[in-house]
Design a protein around this nucleic acid. Structure first.
Length: 222
DNA sequence: AACACTCTCAACCGCTTGTGG
DNA sequence: GCCACAAGCGGTTGAGAGTGT
């Protein structure tokens, strides 16, 4: 039988108070992240270490990007989900400033439903046979760049689905190579541009499975 | 205004994975 | 290789906010 991660009798549960948040922030600022098991006691918190870790990672970390997901982020999540499944931490790792919890919640509350409403199976990212696809009148494909369909409701998602369909039919190549277009978060653009010495507002990327752990690496290029 | 219902998201729980002895 | 422990992850829950009637 596994030992509980903390003495449940002495721990607070539920929503965090401002004071608790401040204690955690102050402690981590001084001592850094790590050793979550001993942190609560050291920081004077009556919380279990896991709870502290979660609070920090999902809410208090200074680099967290809050607010609505951009269409580009939505698109990327859908593509990554098709690629990786429910591996939220991996997906979140490709979205700067987003946490696994946030991505998971957004998927469950928005994207999943969106795909379903469009007749796409969110688990397998395949079009249901019964789907009534938008007519030419409703959804005009750009003959030059299929990625820029103009469709009411949302085009990017349908685009993701169609692109994934293509991916699925392209055989069982082990090497992942998704052609993606992502928007770089605004605060990062100047940094990137300085580093790259060029306009980086829109970059193209591809995933390549070239790391020993098998996780795909996002390579940016133009 | 009051109630019911739905939605969102922070937080919890339990399992898995990684690491050091 | 085995064990114990800590950290990480994904599924699930529930409180509170929002919306409809």
């Amino acid at each position: 039988m596994r030992k509980p991660c903390c003495d449940k009798q002495d721990t607070n549960k539920g929503a965090w108070t401002k004071q608790e948040d401040q204690k955690l922030i102050d402690y981590i600022r001084t001592h850094g992240e790590g050793c979550w098991r001993t942190l609560p006691k050291a920081a004077g918190l009556f919380r279990c270490g896991k709870s502290c870790r979660l609070r920090w990672i999902n809410y208090l970390r200074p680099d967290i990007k809050r607010g609505n997901f951009a269409p580009d982020e939505e698109d990327l999540i859908i593509k990554l989900h098709a690629l990786l499944g429910n591996r939220w931490a991996l997906i979140a790792g490709r979205l700067p400033g987003r946490t696994d919890n946030e991505v998971k919640n957004y998927w469950n509350s928005h994207l999943k439903r969106k795909l379903i409403s469009m007749g796409i199976d969110p688990n397998h990212h395949k079009l249901n046979q019964t789907l009534i696809r938008p007519t030419q009148d409703q959804c005009v494909s750009n003959p030059v760049t299929p990625k820029t369909k103009t469709c009411p409701e949302n085009d990017r998602v349908s685009d993701s689905a169609s692109c994934l369909e293509d991916d699925n039919t392209s055989g069982s190549d082990d090497r992942l190579n998704l052609d993606l277009t992502i928007a770089v978060p605004c605060p990062l653009v100047p940094m990137l541009e300085e580093k790259e010495g060029r306009d980086c507002k829109e970059l193209k990327g591809t995933f390549e499975d070239r790391e020993s752990d098998g996780s795909p690496t996002l390579l940016l290029f133009r």
